[in-house]
Write a protein that binds this DNA or RNA. Structure first.
Lengths: 219, 219
DNA sequence: CGCAGAAAATGAGCGCGTTCATTTTCTTGG
DNA sequence: CCAAGAAAATGAACGCGCTCATTTTCTGCG
């Protein structure tokens, strides 16, 4: 009875235990990071809370930062997906971008100190984790590029603009704003968000003189 | 100001020794960082090379990263100043910006792996070091803003644009390009530089349709 | 079953950056 | 010139992230 080809990954006792343990590690790490911050949490504390030996943790995650990345990427991808659903496709492109970026700011704002660590560590990862993150980032970029393409179709954006290039340009401004915010010393969220909006509007309007009939809008 | 008094800070034996020792630490650290990289250099090795005890190092620099920042900031400020002198004030604004950014890329390109560590660690510093760095960054921003203001005066850039805001916008793209480059996985210097130039041109031209070609505008 | 080999778990131990109680060196007033 | 106090230097020791030789647990097969 039990013999019938249970070679699929999900069925072995070993696999089940591994998955359970992995979940326990992640949830222990999440709780401890939120309570004591990233640096205030020792890997030994995580191991203990997850009920495993100190070394076992590193058979599941390469290092402490990798743990943080895995916790983070899933969360923010969900947040972004939710924000994308609530997007008004007819709104001006800058508003749509700010809606998406604002959703990310909501996420990071939940725990600014932890976000500081996240942003810092997301920049330079080992190739494996990096691939995981880059996938998410590229998905995000493509969402924005898609909105720009639609704006292009309705004539809000020049047709000679490459949507992905424009999205990357927007994203760059967002990223710097995020760094500025989480690194502190650049004002609160409202300030940073206002500066970001200003930058996006500048990109929309361009530096060259006498753009065209479209009057500059102030916010 | 006045160096008349013989008993001022500069003359005591203590002060002289301190300054000498500080110099020895910096030069030892520079040599070791270049030879073995940042993480490959232990603070004990620096102490030994500087001829001091292991703990003494931390009475001169708060921590290992602070040492890196002090080494770095002076160097790159000099590099930027030199580049600013060679700047052609009549060149198109995007070319001028790329000239400045290119000078920074030259600097970082000297030792890409070390630069990776530098860029990563410059983002989030203790307030004291942060102030040191922010000064340099703001100086850099103002240089670019100045060039934009000149371009504005000759009609290359709309007069309604705030030069500092535009410089910040340019700088944001540069910074993301720098992160992309030093974090690897985004192509070599030529690729990154070309992408950066594309972004700057996009900002110059704007997203809105029918931006006229750059006809000069009288003032 | 049992047994051999693979996979996973373990915790003592390593090297690191950093701290701190103690010692050494310099300054200063009498 | 000396004593007393301040400043600076010191290296043993700490806690950290992470490794690795060893032990434990699971699997497939005769």
């Amino acid at each position: 009875m039990s013999e019938a080809a249970p070679e699929t990954a999900s069925s072995g006792l070993r696999e089940r235990k591994k998955r359970k343990k992995r979940e326990r590690i992640l949830s222990a790490a999440r709780a401890l990071f939120l309570e004591h911050g990233f640096e205030g949490t020792t890997t030994r504390a995580i191991s203990e809370a997850a009920g495993i030996g100190a070394g076992t943790l590193f058979t599941y995650f390469r290092d402490k930062r990798s743990l943080l990345v895995h916790l983070f990427v899933d969360d923010i991808e969900a947040q972004v997906a939710r924000a994308a659903e609530r997007l008004d496709p007819d709104a001006p492109i800058v508003d749509q971008a700010m809606h998406m970026f604002g959703a990310c700011f909501d996420f990071y704002g939940q725990d600014l100190e932890l976000s500081r660590t996240i942003v810092k560590n997301l920049l330079f990862l080992d190739p494996e984790d990096s691939a995981h993150l880059d996938g998410a980032t590229f998905g995000f970029l493509q969402r924005i590029a898609g909105r720009i393409a639609v704006a292009q179709a309705r004539g809000e954006v020049r047709s000679s603009v490459d949507p992905l290039a424009a999205a990357t340009c927007f994203f760059g401004q967002y990223y710097v704003a995020l760094i500025a915010w989480t690194s502190g010393n650049f004002g609160g969220r409202e300030t940073v968000e206002a500066l970001l909006r200003g930058s996006l509007e500048l990109i929309r309007d361009g530096l060259v003189p006498v753009a065209n009939s479209q009057e500059p809008r102030d916010m």
